[in-house]
């Protein structure tokens, strides 16, 4: 290709994008849609269920206080600590449940893989920022609340290009 031809081709392919819709995601107004309700694990089959790995959710009436999640996290992030709760459960005699420090968590989800009682899963919530470090520590009570995450945007591809819509 000649030098002039190369320049013309380069400029042409750039200017074409003046009229094509933008690919950018406009974040707080638009939020990405995820697969399912978050990463889960089936201990019977020994395999995970695909989903986004965001903040955890703790199902109180299934947690036995076995500490397996805290042991799994020990060599990874040391984010999980077991704390006393004021609840009476038949399966949880010691009344201890995990508390997660999101200042340390790396969202690998290996604690979910370690839980044999279907008590700890992950959710789609990733908006966890706070003004103090203390607010990043989620108590068992806070972990039980289902997040209100509403994602509705995904990548749409047509003849005119790709966009978030």
């Amino acid at each position: 290709m000649t030098t002039a031809g190369g320049f013309i081709k380069a400029i042409e392919s750039g200017t074409k994008h003046l009229v094509i819709r933008r690919f950018t995601l406009r974040y707080p107004e638009q939020k990405l849609k995820f697969v399912g309700d978050g990463y889960q694990f089936d201990p019977k089959r020994g395999v995970g269920i695909a989903g986004y790995r965001g903040r955890h959710i703790l199902i109180h009436d299934k947690c036995t206080g076995c500490q397996l999640c805290a042991i799994a996290c020990e060599g990874i992030a040391e984010a999980i600590g077991m704390v006393k709760v004021d609840e009476q459960w038949k399966q949880n005699k010691k009344a201890i449940m995990p508390q997660i420090d999101y200042g340390k968590c790396v969202f690998c989800g290996l604690c979910v893989d370690a839980c044999p009682f279907y008590a700890l899963f992950m959710t789609n919530d990733y908006e966890l920022s706070s003004f103090t470090k203390e607010h990043l520590i989620y108590t068992p009570g806070q972990l039980a609340i289902k997040p209100k995450y509403q994602g509705d945007v995904e990548i749409v591809i047509d003849d005119r290009g790709a966009t978030h819509g």
Partner: peptide, 9 residues
């Protein structure tokens, strides 16, 4: 986006 759907992160 594809990896997020597949792996979760």
């Amino acid at each position: 986006d594809l990896l997020e759907a597949l792996t979760g992160a």
